[in-house]
């Protein structure tokens, strides 16, 4: 079991990060806002942690990075992402549907181009040698696992709160929601800011986790990937994005591991090894065909609930 965690510690933590990023995209989606901005805040959070830990709070090479500083970086990343989301969200959220998605993609691009040009972000090479707060990658689970549990609980409670119902009302019909006394602007803005803060915090931990941070993190590709987590997992309950993030991040590595199972004919091994991304793609297409609402839907949860009670 020890060697299992040694080998897959990184993957397990990556899975939780993906689930968190999926939640950060799910938050604005709860209020019906298709925002692809999460990677921008993820990138900003990462740069904040990378710059702070390599330049402002340097530790001797080899020495562990103090945990309280990591927590401080996460706080700063959340605050900066939140304020930026407020500034960007006010004008951007006047747009709807695809147009909002386009505006948020523009934000992702702006962050990428800025980080390629600024001296402080290390231009195209990025920042490397980011100090490690933990001895092994699996230990990051203390941060990411707790963060996932807390955010999942938060979103779960949110879904049943007054604000959560306001999100749902906005999602279903903005005009009707407005007529019932819900302020669309502040409600949407809140959902957007919450998602941005979560993405920023995840970025801050990720920078340490990956040892390095550069402009290839949090690009448009990441936007689409995170959107896929939500779509495949299911976009109507908080469990959907979490499941999608966990599953889609694990899948390529599970396929890689399958190729290593002894006793397989060589053809199957080489197909699993070289074709694993093809299989991955096919599985995604199949799941959208057979589960158009995502893997986890409110209807499915109700059925599980009934079965549990029976």
């Amino acid at each position: 079991m020890d060697s299992f965690f040694n080998q897959y510690g990184f993957l397990i933590v990556s899975m939780t990060f993906s689930a968190l990023l999926a939640l950060s995209l799910y938050l604005p989606l709860m209020a019906g806002q298709l925002s692809l901005a999460s990677p921008a805040f993820y990138a900003i959070g990462g740069y904040i942690a990378a710059v702070l830990s390599t330049q402002i709070f340097p530790v001797e090479s080899g020495a562990p990075f103090p945990l309280e500083r990591l927590l401080l970086e996460m706080l700063i990343a959340a605050a900066v992402s939140g304020v930026l989301a407020l500034l960007v969200g006010l004008p951007a959220l006047r747009l709807r549907g695809v147009y909002l998605a386009l505006a948020t993609i523009a934000l992702v691009e702006i962050v990428r181009v800025l980080s390629l040009n600024l001296e402080i972000t290390g231009k195209a090479i990025g920042i490397f040698g980011i100090p490690q707060p933990f001895a092994t990658k699996l230990d990051y689970l203390w941060i990411s696992g707790v963060l996932l549990l807390v955010s999942a609980f938060f979103v779960y409670r949110l879904e049943h709160s007054r604000m959560g119902r306001a999100f749902a009302a906005l999602r279903e019909d903005e005009l009707a929601a407005g007529a019932m006394g819900i302020n669309p602007t502040t409600t949407k803005l809140l959902a957007f800011v919450l998602g941005a803060m979560l993405a920023g915090v995840v970025g801050a931990v990720s920078a340490h986790f990956l040892n390095t941070w550069n402009a290839r993190q949090g690009t448009f590709d990441a936007s689409i990937l995170i959107l896929a987590y939500v779509i495949i997992g299911g976009s109507r309950t908080f469990l959907g994005p979490i499941a999608g993030g966990l599953l889609l991040t694990a899948l390529p590595e599970v396929l890689r591991a399958l190729a290593g199972v002894p006793g397989l004919p060589p053809l199957a091994v080489s197909f699993l090894q070289d074709g694993r991304l093809i299989i991955y793609g096919v599985l995604i297409v199949l799941s959208t065909l057979f589960f158009p609402q995502g893997l986890i839907t409110p209807a499915l949860l109700r059925r599980w609930n009934r079965k549990g009670r029976a």
Binding site: S3, F4, A250, A257, G260, V261, P262
Partner: peptide, 15 residues
């Protein structure tokens, strides 16, 4: 998937 992860991990040891 779970079985696959466990299998591959245990077999990686005994090669």
């Amino acid at each position: 998937l779970v079985v696959a992860i466990l299998l591959s991990a245990s077999f990686a040891l005994a090669q």
